[in-house]
Simulated scan of single mutants.
Amino acid sequence: MTHPPTPVGRHVLADLDGIDAEVLDDVAGLRAALSDALTAAGATVRQVVAEAFEPHGVTLVALLAESHASVHTWPEHGRALVDVFTCGDAADPELAVALLAGATGGELREIRTIARGGEPVRVVEPLSPGLARTWELGRVHLRESTPFQDLLIADTAHGVTLFCDDERQSAESTQLIYHEALFVPAALSARRRERVLVVGSSEGVVSELAIACGATLVDHVDVDAAAVRACAAHLPYGYTPETLAAAERGDGPVRVHYADGRAWVRGDGPRYDVIVVDLPDERPDDADNQLNRLYTRDFLADCRDRLAAGGVVVSQAGSAAVWRDATLRAAWDRFHAVFAQVRYVGSDEHEWSFLVGGADLADPDLAGLAYEPVSIDAEFLRTRTVAPAGLRNR
């Protein structure tokens, strides 16, 4: 028996805020804006039905050859809730939402993309030449392209998971293990830990750990504002929209700055006890990738020059697995070229290694640390700070 093809589509749900009340009550203007946005995004509009309500508010439904779209407005709140569902590849529902936001002057506060029908959606994550890992996705919370990367936040077997350019960055079930290994040994290696600089780490977990470990000020610098805000809106760890908004205002010990991390550390400025560089993996085969600028000896030297006395720099350094350790070996050589002392930290979230550099590293000791780690104890500090023999013997 021949079965008909399984329907496959994308259903985008979006919240638009900050729209003038007059725009949200203008039936003719909204009808034109919705039709134009859908058409420009590749959809075929069959008809648009609109209904105005008293004392205010409008609902529009567009019937498409590809499926449908709808807009519901609340002028008194400056808000419109939008959904666009399209089947096939001819139309781009995310683009339609973005164009509608631009036409109405709205700010895209939240967007979710849900795959409808078809086989399970998967992400194929490259690990090394000839080897990849496949992630089967459940609910897709967000799919967005920023000027810097493609973001995906979705449910996986590891909980809510963040992908950047199809590489897993953090997952609900293991993110604390990763972030504790990144920050806690580095904080213990520093002579003080009152002032912390975080470059990257869009989830905000490191900022929270720094405060828990005794920091009184955290400057969090990330070039991608859309990524930081998406993580706050959709990840069940790290910043919430409320705590991020406070950090963006500088209201509290954490201050978020949307800026180039390389430019931030160059030249004069405040000195830090701990500088954390938490980025996606180095991409040596992609010479034009902006991430690579933060994986250079010059950048490490700039970080070193921004340290207070007894301060340390810690960076995500790749994997210790011998079949994919090229970036770790390169990072090891850079750290030893820049810092008088280097300490290796291997995470129990097995893919990750970190390097800590400074002029005079303190012996890591949990005694007196205000924060009690979940995944790090004295035995971890004794055993997981021994570098693999392949690195030690270089």
Rank of each mutant, 00 (worst) to 15 (best):
M1T: 07
T6R: 14
P7H: 08
P7E: 01
V23L: 10
D25N: 15
A28D: 15
L30P: 09
R31Y: 01
T44H: 14
R46W: 09
F53I: 00
P55G: 08
V58T: 06
V61S: 12
S67M: 10
V71G: 04
P75V: 01
P75Q: 07
E76G: 12
G78A: 07
R79K: 15
A80Y: 01
A90S: 15
V97Q: 01
G105F: 08
L108I: 01
E110L: 06
I114P: 06
P120T: 05
V124W: 10
L127Q: 13
G130A: 03
R133M: 12
T134A: 03
T134Q: 06
L137I: 14
R139Q: 12
R139W: 06
R139I: 15
V140D: 03
L151V: 15
L152A: 05
A154V: 07
T156K: 03
G159W: 09
T161H: 03
L162C: 09
L162E: 05
L162D: 10
S170M: 11
L176W: 13
H179A: 11
H179F: 08
A181Q: 05
F183A: 09
A186D: 12
A187C: 13
S189D: 04
E194A: 12
V196W: 14
E203I: 10
V205N: 00
E208V: 10
A212M: 11
V221I: 14
A230V: 10
A232E: 06
Y239T: 00
T240N: 01
E242G: 02
A246S: 07
A247Q: 01
D251M: 01
P253K: 00
R255W: 08
A259E: 15
G261M: 04
R262C: 01
W264E: 13
G267V: 08
G269V: 11
V274W: 11
V276P: 07
V276H: 01
D278E: 14
P280L: 08
D281I: 05
R283M: 12
R283N: 09
D288K: 10
N289A: 13
L291P: 11
Y295N: 09
R297D: 09
D302E: 14
R304T: 13
D305M: 06
G311Y: 11
G311F: 13
V322S: 11
D325T: 06
R329C: 05
A331L: 02
R334W: 02
F335V: 08
A337W: 09
V338A: 04
R343H: 01
R343W: 02
F354R: 01
L355W: 07
L355M: 05
G358M: 01
L361R: 00
A362W: 03
A362V: 08
D365G: 10
A367F: 08
G368E: 02
Y371Q: 04
Y371W: 07
F380Y: 15
